[in-house]
Simulated assay, not measured.
Amino acid sequence: MSHTATTTPTIAVEVVLPGRVEPHELMITRRELPPPRPGRVLVRVEATGVSFAEQQMRRGKYYDQPPFPFTPGYDLVGEVIAVGADSDAALLGQRVAALTKVGGWSSHLILEAADLIPVPTGLTAAEAETFVVNGITAWQMLHRIAKVHAGQTIVVHGANGGVGSTLVQLARVAGIRVIGTASASNAAAVEAIGAIPVDYRGDVPRQVRALAPGGVDAVFDHVGGRSVVDSFGLLATGGTLVAYGSASTKDEDGNSRLPVLKLFARLAWWNLLPNNRSAHFYNIWSGKRRRARFRSRLAEDLGAVLDLAARGELRAQIAARFPLADAGRALALAESRTVTGKVVLVPKELP
């Protein structure tokens, strides 16, 4: 029995991705959620976001997405409104964050209590939401993989995006010089968060070499394809390439896994060469088989990011807010590449 005054089912409003559709073809459905079982909690979602993963999923291009139909939503922030037996009753009323991969585009969700991460006071739900998957990804790539330190120089591709803008800010807090690629129209926004803007439509290697003639200490590349080759070539001796996507192939037909497998092979080959540079692929879910350690790292890393944000050292980059029912418009805006930061869905604004 849950630790609440009622055990009646909750009606959850969900956005469903029915297949390979255009953003306006997303569906809104309702389903009944039972009271949470032992070890689980019921969360009223206050904010969820549009990540690059959902842009790939609607095309059937995300590496390990579930079969259609399903509810997207990679992460969320919400309030615990019911807890099952064996769950800590102190969680009731707490604002928490969770990494979900799918399911977040919902008004309510049942989650494992052990997967929840407390959100510090001083952050709104929408602000905290911008740092969940983006913050974990940026922190782990910067500090756990590349291990960049103060005084070094890095390149961040897509510096105006959700992960990119978070990565730029984390690097600047750590005293790292950042060169950020973006469109010319987003150059001012990239500069405002502390990066030196470079136009991705131009000759990126030439522009970066002009700013860092001896090479850079790390490059963070979500583009894949030709970009990752150029990125590896920008590294100084001892430098690190961190690839974390294949955005350049999201509109290509064919097997969704092939571009990623090609990327894996290329990175592995570079690591065999005697060039004193390293190449890695970042996957936020790596290490999940060691569940306790995985959860501990998520809590530690996201906790560090949220604490920085609560102290005002990071600024939430909210591109736009939409009600959950307007998920299609939100997805289209995120895909337009015209915004800085993250597009956020706010379920409480349901019609």
Rank of each mutant, 00 (worst) to 15 (best):
A195R: 02
F232M: 05
G194F: 09
S185M: 13
L235Y: 01
H222P: 15
S227E: 02
A189I: 08
R201D: 11
A188D: 14
I196R: 10
V223Q: 01
V204M: 03
E191N: 14
R206Y: 14
N186E: 14
G225K: 02
G233T: 06
Y200E: 10
R201S: 15
P197Q: 05
G224H: 00
A218S: 07
V216K: 01
A195T: 07
P205Q: 06
A212C: 13
V223R: 02
D221W: 09
A210I: 12
A218Q: 04
F220I: 01
A218K: 07
V228H: 07
V190F: 04
R206M: 14
G202Y: 10
A187R: 01
A218Y: 07
A212F: 04
V228E: 05
S185Q: 14
V204D: 03
D221T: 06
G214Q: 14
Y200A: 08
S227C: 12
A212E: 07
I193P: 02
A189P: 09
G224E: 03
A189M: 10
V190Q: 04
L235T: 06
Y200H: 09
V216R: 00
F220W: 06
S185V: 13
G233A: 07
V229H: 01
D203R: 11
V204Y: 00
V190S: 04
V229N: 08
G225V: 08
A189Q: 10
V198D: 07
G194C: 09
Y200M: 11
G233Q: 04
A188E: 15
A236I: 00
